[in-house]
Write a protein that binds this DNA or RNA. Structure first.
Lengths: 140, 140
DNA sequence: CGTTGACCTTCCAGCAACTGGAAGGCCTAT
DNA sequence: ATAGGCCTTCCAGTTGCTGGAAGGTCAACG
């Protein structure tokens, strides 16, 4: 329970690079914790859990500012509040993911169409694409 | 043919904000062109076409550095070279889009699973999520 | 002729979320 | 004692803009 890790081990446990952990501490995602007499940061098991929560929360696509709030809910407030917020966030993220998927499907169609156009016509090969009548791909 | 536009009109024609056009010029996507005696930038029809190509090329998900190369192909090299490169880029982008879509589908499943877990169990509501045995969503 | 308002110029700062590197302290092993 | 591997801080750079300040220009209106 009382075994504290230096940043390298903590990074390994949390699945994040040391630099990122320092950065997270700097911006308040993780509270400034203990140091040993040499000034080395020391991380508790709770710190590691918090870092892992942060890492996992990134699948929700949140900016760090909001992940910070979420971590506060989990670590400083009640389990109920955390779950409610998490539920909202998951719903929002799902909507977002769906929208993105359909945008990508549209893009895919557009690219396929472009690819076909490109292959089904013969390039003059001699002009600059800028000037070629046939090379209207530019404005398309 | 000889009618040149100031940046505001050019921006309108190209579908890009003036600031962005200045930025593109700064980073070399558009060559530094003419100025009037007051120092105002002036844009030709070819400039507008080039800006439009740049804007369109963003659906290929390229960094500006590569869009710059692509624009050079279209405007300074032959139509054939441009089309070949375009073909490669479209293929690469298609692969990328497909990969992203399938990642998002996976993510969607994961979120749906999480949502279900969250709703199918009763929260104790009293503890902090950090400590609650049941609230293992954190590490999941 | 003056002045208002819209336009243009340059330069500087900041966004998000890190990442890389320099310069230096600490700790262990050989 | 010295080599290496870890740790510290601070500063700069990434990508593609975007916002704002301070100031020049231009057309129109009174």
């Amino acid at each position: 329970m009382g075994d504290l890790l230096t940043i390298g081990k903590a990074a390994e446990q949390a699945g994040l690079p040391p630099k990122t952990i320092r950065y997270y501490q700097e911006v308040g995602l993780l509270p400034d914790g203990q140091r040993n007499e040499a000034g080395y940061r020391l991380f508790s098991a709770a710190d590691i859990r918090r870092l892992r929560l942060v890492r996992r929360a990134k699948i929700l696509g949140l900016p760090l500012r909001e992940i910070k709030d979420l971590a506060s809910l989990a670590f400083d407030e009640s389990c109920g509040a955390f779950e409610q917020r998490l539920d909202e966030l998951i719903a929002a993220r799902l909507a977002d993911v769906e929208r993105t998927i359909s945008e990508l499907l549209d893009l895919q169609q557009e690219l396929l169409g472009l690819q076909e156009t490109l292959q089904s016509r013969s390039s003059c090969g001699a002009c600059r694409a800028d000037e070629c009548e046939a090379c209207h791909l530019i404005d398309d």
